[in-house]
Simulated scan of single mutants.
Amino acid sequence: MASSFSNIGAICKLPSAPSISSISRALFPTTLCSYRHSRISRPRSRRLCIRSSYAGAVRENPNSDAIDVVADVKTERIVVIGGSGFVGSAICKAAVSRGIEVISLSRSGRPSYSGSWVDQVTWMTGDVFYANWDELLVGVTAVVSTLGGFGSDEQMQKINGEANVVVVNAAKDYGIPKFILISVHDYNLPSFLLQSGYFKGKRRAESEVLSKFPSSGVVLRPAFIYGKRKVNGVEIPLDLIGEPVEKLLRATESFIKPLNSLPASDLVLAPPVSVDDVAYAVINAIKDDDCFGIFTIEQIKEAAAGVKV
């Protein structure tokens, strides 16, 4: 699919139908062009040394009358838009596990399920069109948007496009250093399908991220995302489908590669992506100040692998 963006430089480079209603909603979480990326780095832990005359926990310095106070400090504070959803909750959980302060904004607020990490997230109920950004964005180092949905053409353009644009511009206005968007694989669908509200909305959102955050905006473009998804209290084990399919496609990659040129072939041949890989790729983007650009399926997996180890 043609893109309005040309490749830009970075510190390091990475290898950069039927109607929408008839395609399974689980297939798409988002689209655009190939981009060049910065390096993928492993997460960093930071410690702050403070010279002080008093502290509850201190380490004495034999060479000085002063006291060295060594404290672990949370260096990142993020807002996850849609944090109570399938992908959003995985991102919140992964961020908490890495010592990142997390605020979630979603229409449903705090999720119904439990977990030790749930209590460590600040859950806020609200709509991005009416959000109190003064309350949400002060002191934030990154905003992550998982917004996306299906419906009428108008509804899809609003939630996939307009809603994300509102968040991007709010983040820009408040001087947030980084913006991360969960988008969708660039499917090789016929052009008339790519003009639907779903894809047009996603393209508009990506365009906004890359124009407002040209050197710090990150767009992740997974295909089908699998994991244990909870809907109305019922757990749907998408991993029972996605994981075997991913392994099969990888095992037969050399044989099916010639089929990739066929129209709409990657509806079937694009490898599924674990929700954990998406979450850890987000963590990589948060931790690495030089990380930016559009990440394809393989680049998402590579970014996640760098954080997992």
Score class of each variant (00 low, 15 high):
178 K>P: 05
308 K>A: 09
245 V>G: 03
145 S>E: 02
79 V>L: 15
254 S>F: 11
219 V>F: 10
139 G>A: 11
217 G>L: 09
131 A>S: 14
158 K>Q: 13
62 P>C: 01
135 E>R: 14
5 F>P: 07
45 S>N: 08
37 H>N: 14
301 K>F: 00
282 V>R: 07
215 S>Q: 09
254 S>K: 10
166 V>Y: 15
70 V>G: 12
106 S>V: 10
21 S>W: 11
28 F>W: 04
300 I>G: 02
122 T>W: 01
40 I>Q: 12
283 I>Q: 12
161 G>I: 01
144 V>S: 11
179 F>V: 09
278 V>F: 07
111 P>D: 01
284 N>F: 00
253 E>L: 08
10 A>V: 05
306 G>K: 13
38 S>H: 15
264 A>T: 08
160 N>T: 03
282 V>E: 10
87 V>N: 06
39 R>Y: 03
128 V>H: 01
165 V>P: 05
104 S>V: 08
173 D>P: 03
232 N>Y: 14
21 S>T: 14
218 V>N: 02
149 G>I: 00
106 S>K: 00
37 H>L: 09
101 E>Y: 05
248 L>N: 03
149 G>E: 07
205 A>H: 13
275 V>P: 06
150 F>G: 02
103 I>G: 00
44 R>N: 01
275 V>G: 01
307 V>L: 08
98 R>L: 08
112 S>A: 13
189 L>V: 09
291 C>F: 15
295 F>M: 04
6 S>R: 06
67 I>L: 15
128 V>Y: 11
254 S>N: 15
271 P>Y: 06
33 C>E: 05
43 P>S: 10
43 P>M: 00
98 R>M: 04
168 V>I: 11
91 I>H: 09
2 A>M: 12
265 S>Y: 10
267 L>H: 07
5 F>T: 03
101 E>A: 10
81 I>S: 10
191 S>D: 15
299 Q>W: 00
85 G>F: 06
294 I>M: 13
183 S>M: 13
181 L>D: 06
221 R>E: 12
210 L>P: 02
173 D>G: 06
307 V>R: 08
212 K>I: 09
230 K>H: 04
285 A>H: 00
301 K>L: 09
99 G>M: 09
2 A>H: 14
37 H>W: 00
259 L>P: 08
104 S>D: 09
19 S>T: 15
57 A>S: 15
183 S>P: 03
45 S>Y: 08
191 S>R: 12
123 W>T: 12
86 F>C: 04
135 E>G: 06
114 S>G: 07
116 S>C: 04
91 I>N: 03
83 G>C: 12
207 S>V: 00
108 S>Q: 15
197 G>P: 01
157 Q>R: 15
82 G>Y: 12
131 A>Y: 07
292 F>K: 13
44 R>K: 06
291 C>P: 03
100 I>C: 04
197 G>N: 07
